[in-house]
Computed example of a mutant assay.
Amino acid sequence: MTVSWSAYRRARRRSRQAWALVILLGVSAAASVAWFFTAGQFAAAEPAIAGPTEAPVFDPGFMKPVVPVHAVPRGSAREALDGLPVKGRAPNDNYEREAFGQAWQDLDRNGCDTRNDVLRRDLTGVVFTEGSTCRVAAGHFHEPYTGLPVDFRRGSESSKAVQIDHVVALGDAWQKGAQRLSPQQRQSLANDPLNLIAADGPANQQKSAGDAATWLPKNKAFRCHYVARQISVKAAYGLWVTQPEKDAMKRVLDSCPQQLTVTAG
């Protein structure tokens, strides 16, 4: 049987095209397998975070306002950020927690210390210890930093699972203007509900004294409120930001240009 030259060339072209397709499919399959065994399996296994976008600030039913040094400027958080001074960090070799007063005072004189006030404000289904209308024994909430549901149970070990975070960490505040405040003003900063959020214990420990340039909540939906709250606290207590901190705050606010400052009233 005689095969024409043109038919032979067509057969060879089809064969090359088929082999090219096989190779392409093989490379794609290999890339998919490599992706799965590096990042893909974790992306598939990790649930999407759909946590809260903001957190409570003030409950007039049982809280009394703490008077800050300055009123929080109302309006755009971005404009308030532009109004903050930009400086470097002051030394922290003389920082002590006691400079902000005894931890968890009853600064607003409502009969309950600040920690229990914030737990009562932020948790739902609150249960008090027997015979008390102040000490929170249990509750649950949609934790803002991780975006996950968290239960609180009072106990020598279990209480650590939910901690009260200073939105502007006291160590950060000390290096950015708080040294110039009076002892009473520093006590207000440490106990102001504007600067306090019930948070996941490990997340709070990871944050430590970090600012927005070094730590942001894993729950991205909460970052705009978080940054706006930091800006509001710094404006209220005459604190400054570093340039890297301001740049990080701007990047967050670029995703929410309508974000307003946060007030405790």
Rank of each mutant, 00 (worst) to 15 (best):
H166V: 01
W5T: 15
A198R: 00
D108V: 02
A45Y: 07
G40W: 00
D151T: 06
K246Q: 14
E98K: 10
D106I: 03
F62N: 02
R135C: 07
T214Y: 03
G125L: 11
L119Q: 00
Q187S: 15
N219F: 09
K234F: 05
D113F: 14
Q205K: 10
D113G: 04
F37W: 14
A209Y: 08
N204P: 03
L148V: 14
W35G: 05
W5S: 14
D117G: 00
V150D: 02
A137C: 08
S32W: 04
R180C: 09
S28V: 12
A236F: 06
G265D: 09
G201Q: 02
L25C: 15
S76D: 03
V27A: 09
F58V: 11
S159P: 01
G61E: 05
F42Y: 09
S28K: 06
L123G: 01
L260V: 13
A20S: 12
V69H: 13
A235R: 00
A71Y: 09
W215S: 08
E54V: 13
A209I: 15
P85I: 06
D82E: 14
P60Y: 03
R223N: 14
A235S: 15
K160W: 08
P56C: 04
E143A: 08
P52R: 04
G125V: 11
R12H: 09
D122P: 03
G139C: 04
H140R: 15
W174R: 08
S188P: 15
L107G: 11
K176G: 01
W174Y: 06
V67D: 13
A77C: 09
R153A: 09
V136H: 02
P144K: 01
S208G: 11
K220A: 15
C224H: 11
S255Y: 10
Q102G: 13
G61I: 07
G40P: 00
P144H: 01
